[in-house]
Amino acid sequence: MARRFFILFLAVMVWAFPGQGVAADKAGKTLKIVYVDWDCAVASSNLVKAVLEERYGYRVELLPVSQEAMWTSVASGAADAMVAAWLPDTHADMYARVKNKVEMLGKLVGGARLGLAVPDYVSLRSIDELEANADRFNGRIVGIDPGAGIMRLTAKALKDYEITQLQLVPGSGPSMAASLAEAIRTHEWIVVTAWSPHWMFSRWPMHYLDDPLASLGKDESIFKIGREGLKKDHPEVWAFLSNFRFEDATQLQRLMDWNQQRGTDPVQNALRFMKENPRLVDSWFKK
Rank of each mutant, 00 (worst) to 15 (best):
Q260A: 09
V237P: 02
L130D: 01
I163H: 05
I127T: 05
P197C: 11
K29M: 10
L158Q: 08
D233M: 04
A177G: 04
A16S: 09
K287G: 15
F246A: 01
L166H: 03
K159S: 13
A43N: 02
A157K: 03
V142G: 00
A177C: 03
A96L: 10
S242H: 11
I163P: 01
L255H: 05
N259R: 11
V169W: 00
I127N: 00
T186F: 11
A249F: 05
M200S: 08
F5C: 02
P212T: 11
R203G: 01
V191T: 04
L52P: 02
G139P: 04
I190Q: 01
K26N: 13
G217Q: 05
V98E: 01
S66L: 12
F5D: 07
Y95P: 00
R125P: 01
R136M: 10
M1N: 08
A270N: 08
R4L: 15
S221W: 12
K232M: 09
V74L: 10
R245Q: 14
G21F: 05
D233S: 10
W204G: 02
E103W: 02
M104N: 15
I225W: 01
N243P: 07
I150E: 06
D37S: 14
M13A: 14
F246D: 00
F5W: 10
M13W: 09
G28A: 15
L166Y: 02
P235Q: 12
K232I: 14
Q268Y: 00
A16R: 08
W38M: 09
A181W: 01
E220H: 09
A16L: 15
D128N: 14
V42L: 14
S202C: 05
N269S: 06
V191C: 07
D120F: 03
S175C: 01
H187I: 03
G229K: 04
Q268G: 03
R3L: 15
L271N: 03
E103D: 13
Y35P: 04
R113Q: 13
L124S: 07
L180C: 07
A132H: 11
A239H: 13
L158V: 09
P64V: 00
V48D: 00
A112Y: 04
T154H: 02
W284R: 03
S215M: 12
A41Q: 14
L153R: 10
G171P: 01
F273R: 02
L108A: 10
K32Q: 09
S196V: 12
G19H: 11
L209G: 04
S283C: 05
G115D: 03
V14Y: 01
A96C: 05
V22P: 00
L252M: 13
D211S: 09
V281H: 03
N138A: 11
E103P: 01
F285G: 09
